[in-house]
Simulated assay, not measured.
Amino acid sequence: MNSNSKLDNRDRAVLMKTSFMQGLSTNSAIRVLSAMSVLNLPVRHSIFREGEKAELFYCVLSGYVRLYRLSHEGREADIRICGPGDSFAECLLYSDNAYAYNAQTAEHSALAAFDMQMIRDIASEEKDVAQAVMASLSRHLLSIIDCVANDRLFTAPQRVANYILARCPVDGGPALIRLPFQKSLLAGMLGLAPEALSRAFSTLRKSGVTVRGRAIQVVDVANLRNV
């Protein structure tokens, strides 16, 4: 693990577009960045475990991070897959001081790590920082509501179809998209077991969806909307 890296231009651009950093004054942004370090982590690196003392929250600059919980029997349940621009664990800024889930890199990743106590101190003095924290928490809450609704309203094939449609570059006709990560991560993102994802892809073949590795070919985007 390398925790001495500095923000390069690409990572800075990703960070400054997050809901947590957008809208900060120059002075506030400088203070917030002073409470941050950059971590370069290998694949499957444990960032933190459920129950550990929460001292940092994070923003993904590159790569993907898997948030999950473990049952007493060792079964895993994915909570969220975080990609570039996503933040996690900031919900603990004003809550319990222990992480409520596990976080692990799904591939080589660069993370911005923020010291919670320093951010709390800055937010108490800088109104725009406090507002940025609330905006980030609000975005997470709305995202959770969407996830719960999707689990209740859509079948597994519909969830997969919606994911594909949201990333198709055209509204009709053929399209080709490429998954940015392994299908096991897509399953977790959609709240499906890997075998349920495989069955969903098999069902979607009738609607013109073909999967080869990470490449997904759609014969007719308009037809896929009828799933």
Rank of each mutant, 00 (worst) to 15 (best):
residue 175 A to L: 05
residue 45 H to W: 09
residue 87 S to G: 15
residue 118 M to D: 08
residue 76 E to K: 13
residue 109 S to Q: 09
residue 186 L to C: 09
residue 12 R to T: 09
residue 110 A to E: 12
residue 114 F to N: 04
residue 207 S to F: 15
residue 215 A to F: 14
residue 78 D to T: 15
residue 1 M to S: 10
residue 121 D to I: 12
residue 153 L to V: 07
residue 18 T to V: 00
residue 29 A to Y: 01
residue 130 A to V: 00
residue 156 A to Y: 06
residue 19 S to I: 01
residue 13 A to L: 12
residue 85 G to I: 00
residue 197 L to E: 06
residue 162 N to R: 14
residue 106 A to Q: 07
residue 207 S to P: 01
residue 166 A to D: 11
residue 159 R to V: 04
residue 202 S to T: 11
residue 133 V to D: 02
residue 26 T to S: 12
residue 8 D to E: 04
residue 206 K to P: 09
residue 224 L to P: 11
residue 211 V to I: 08
residue 89 A to Q: 08
residue 72 H to Y: 08
residue 226 N to C: 12
residue 130 A to H: 02
residue 97 N to A: 12
residue 196 A to E: 14
residue 203 T to N: 09
residue 173 G to E: 06
residue 141 L to N: 05
residue 176 L to H: 06
residue 190 L to H: 05
residue 60 V to S: 08
residue 93 L to A: 02
residue 124 S to K: 11
residue 70 L to V: 09
residue 108 H to A: 14
residue 190 L to T: 09
residue 166 A to R: 09
residue 146 D to G: 04
residue 155 T to C: 03
residue 114 F to R: 00
residue 185 L to T: 04
residue 53 K to E: 07
residue 147 C to G: 10
residue 134 M to S: 10
residue 26 T to P: 00
residue 80 R to H: 13
residue 51 G to I: 00
residue 180 P to V: 02
residue 33 L to K: 07
residue 87 S to Y: 13
residue 63 G to A: 04
residue 76 E to R: 14
residue 34 S to P: 03
residue 63 G to I: 06
residue 198 S to A: 12
residue 174 P to W: 03
residue 64 Y to P: 10
residue 19 S to C: 10
residue 67 L to P: 14
residue 105 T to Y: 07
residue 50 E to H: 02
residue 120 R to M: 10
residue 87 S to W: 11
